[in-house]
């Protein structure tokens, strides 16, 4: 199988680590070669962060370049827009509608762009935007946005729900399992 590419993007500290861990586990269990790549260090301090997940028969490069992503999973709207050029022309964006002002917006040096979902759709990108924070809170914790997003992503993914569930069981601590499964379902069925 040709290598498939998923990018997980967001703001440092939003919890993309668990999402990439879950995907890595799920895809490895499906028998694929997998590479997951992220950058640690300074970019974690509230900066723009990106994780690359690649899978297929044989994966070489650990990173995804412009025009190569099959999916962009975004924790934050501006970040989805920032990385749009990395999407394949027929690629799918799954994004939370949450907006977090970056420092240039906070200081008034720049404006947070309006109507980003419509503008992204106008480029031809397929965009699935939903209020993941509200769904995560409904599941029981604002920290469960990652599982809401994974549930939504599972829509577009030819993997049985049972495999997703066993991957969730493998990577999520037991005491948060029910909460996370609920978040996954809420995202999936939204």
């Amino acid at each position: 199988m040709e290598t498939k590419n998923i990018m997980i993007v967001g703001v440092g500290g939003q919890g993309s680590l668990l999402a990439s861990k879950l995907l890595g586990h799920l895809l490895m269990e499906q028998g694929y070669d997998v590479k997951v790549s992220e950058v640690h260090g300074m970019s974690q301090r509230g900066g723009s962060v990106v994780t690359y997940v690649r899978y297929g028969d044989r994966v070489n490069s650990p990173v995804i370049d412009k025009g190569e992503a099959d999916f962009i999973v975004s924790f934050e709207l501006l970040e989805a827009a920032r990385w749009l050029s990395y999407l394949k022309p027929n690629g799918q964006i799954v994004t939370s509608t949450q907006q977090i002002d970056p420092m240039p917006v906070i200081t008034g040096a720049a404006k947070y762009p309006e109507n980003l979902v419509e503008k992204m759709k106008a480029t031809g990108a397929k965009v699935d935007a939903l209020d993941c924070l509200a769904l995560a809170n409904q599941a029981g914790s604002s920290k469960a946005v990652n599982l809401v997003l994974m549930g939504r992503l599972s829509h577009y993914f030819g993997v049985d729900e049972a495999h997703w569930m066993s991957a969730i069981e493998a990577v999520v601590p037991a005491k948060f399992l029910e909460l996370n499964k609920k978040a996954f379902e809420l995202g999936k069925n939204a």
């Binding site: 703001v11 440092g12 300074m42 970019s43 974690q44 301090r45 509230g46 900066g47 723009s48 412009k66 025009g67 190569e68 501006l78 970040e79 827009a81 920032r82 749009l84 050029s85 990395y86 999407l87 022309p89 970056p102 420092m103 240039p104 917006v105 040096a109 720049a110 404006k111 947070y112 762009p113 980003l116 503008k119 992204m120 480029t123 031809g124 990108a125």
Partner: peptide, 13 residues
């Protein structure tokens, strides 16, 4: 890649 005709403010650490 696709191009979005929009200025995206930076998000420095």
């Amino acid at each position: 890649g696709l191009t979005l005709d929009e200025t995206i403010p930076g998000r420095p650490p």
